[in-house]
Amino acid sequence: MSVLTEAIARLLLAPALMVAGAILVKGYVDVGDGFSAAVIVTLAVALQYLVLGARRTEEEIPLLRFAPRAAIAGLLIALASGFFPLLFGDPLFSHEPGPGKRPIHVGRLELMTPVLFDVGVFLLVAGALIALIHHLAEPPELEEEGHPAPAAASPAAPAAREEASR
């Protein structure tokens, strides 16, 4: 890796995060959603792994250690925002405020439970993918015991996407 790629990789991280944030939020007025935002974040992180190597990347961005936990938290958030209407006896995956009611506005962002759902999907996808990259960047040592974590994290992914996609 040349100095140039390293510099560009570092420079790209912050803008990529911002774009991802914008796409996540834009989803309710314009094209975008939690999944694509998460993929963009993961691509930026993957570039760091490629350029800097696994160890240095994780030293520089200590937040990456929490990736598996973020994935699980994300899945729980998504499940919660899908199943909470059960408490009020509404059908599953109804959203609050319901159709026809005015949601709370923060700037141009409309706050309603589907936003929460997409945040959950974002965390889930980003967390699971980063955990995967972590494990594939440092494959298990020869004859080392222990289960590959990406395999453990992956069953969660399709499950949450199922609601997200419709």
Partner: peptide, 21 residues
């Protein structure tokens, strides 16, 4: 209806939380 939703929700949440442990 509640039973149907709970049959799905309960193991799902338990399974996901247990991934941590």
């Amino acid at each position: 209806m509640t039973a149907l939703a709970l049959a799905l929700l309960l193991p799902w949440v338990v399974g996901v939380v247990l991934l941590l442990a």
